[in-house]
């Protein structure tokens, strides 16, 4: 492991925000937001806990493998996107994240975080099937 590789523990000071999320995503880390009061975890940041309303949220490293909760292939794409692509909601040990799929998956397939794509400067996670 590269010594310059950022980590959630070292990089996220205080409540995690979008800037933390995208920087870590681009470095290969899925940063979730965990409530210090009730433990609720989401895969993207909120400013207060969506379960209990606590402001005490901390960055937490999510697993990079999970299971497909649902999926669809977008054939009619919006401006800025061309060829059809598959999008899936991934269940990462109980925390869900929406991602692009490299390859093809079905519900309940195992997948791993493999890459990012960037649209208009905004990165998004890409997952691939685990053979």
């Amino acid at each position: 492991m590269n010594g310059d590789r950022p980590s959630v523990a070292e990089d996220v000071r205080g409540v995690p925000d979008y800037d933390d999320w995208r920087e870590l995503l681009e470095a290969g880390i899925l940063m979730g937001s965990q409530c210090g009061s009730c433990g609720q975890t989401t895969a993207t940041p909120h400013r207060r806990c969506i379960e209990c309303g606590s402001e005490h949220l901390n960055g937490t490293e999510l697993p990079t493998t999970g299971e497909v909760y649902s999926e669809t292939t977008i054939n009619v794409t919006p401006t800025g996107f061309d060829e059809p692509y598959q999008i899936a909601i991934i269940d990462l040990d109980g925390t869900r994240l929406t991602a692009r799929i490299a390859g093809t998956v079905e519900i309940a397939d195992r997948v791993r975080f493999s890459d990012t794509i960037t649209t208009n400067g905004c990165p998004a996670p890409v997952f691939e099937p685990i053979e």
Partner: peptide, 24 residues
């Protein structure tokens, strides 16, 4: 804006995700 639009998620796509899970 930041967690779904960069994926190219569309509204048929949103309801397709819900419906596919319902089918499952």
């Amino acid at each position: 804006r930041t967690y779904e639009q960069p994926l190219g998620l569309t509204f048929p796509g949103v309801f397709a995700l819900l419906t596919k899970r319902h089918m499952y």
